[in-house]
């Protein structure tokens, strides 16, 4: 797949997931819904990091630093809430 097609595929996934976040927000608040919303946010962050920022081709340390930022933050948020 060409680089441009990869980017467009990432963007489409990001748009669908963004709409999914709002749809999940319509469901009555619960711990499970909050975790699902955070999981969607982490997936979006990974799509941006690996797709748009091209970290999938980058040295592993940098890739994992950025990917783990989203995971650690989401875990901290879920503990705080």
């Amino acid at each position: 797949m060409s680089a441009s097609r990869v980017l467009i595929a990432c963007w489409m996934a990001l748009a669908v997931l963004s709409s999914g976040t709002v749809a999940l927000g319509q469901i009555a608040a619960s711990g499970l819904v909050s975790i699902a919303i955070l999981a969607v946010a982490v997936t979006k962050a990974w799509l941006i990091a690996d797709g748009f920022m091209e970290l999938r081709h980058a040295p592993r340390l940098w890739r994992w630093l950025v990917l783990s930022w989203a995971v650690v933050l989401a875990i901290a948020i879920s503990f705080a809430l």
């Binding site: 976040t21 909050s34 919303i37 962050a45 941006i48």
Partner: peptide, 13 residues
């Protein structure tokens, strides 16, 4: 990248 975590925290969660 920042917005995709900020958005659910501020508007949704």
């Amino acid at each position: 990248l920042v917005w995709v975590l900020l958005f659910p925290v501020v508007y949704i969660l």
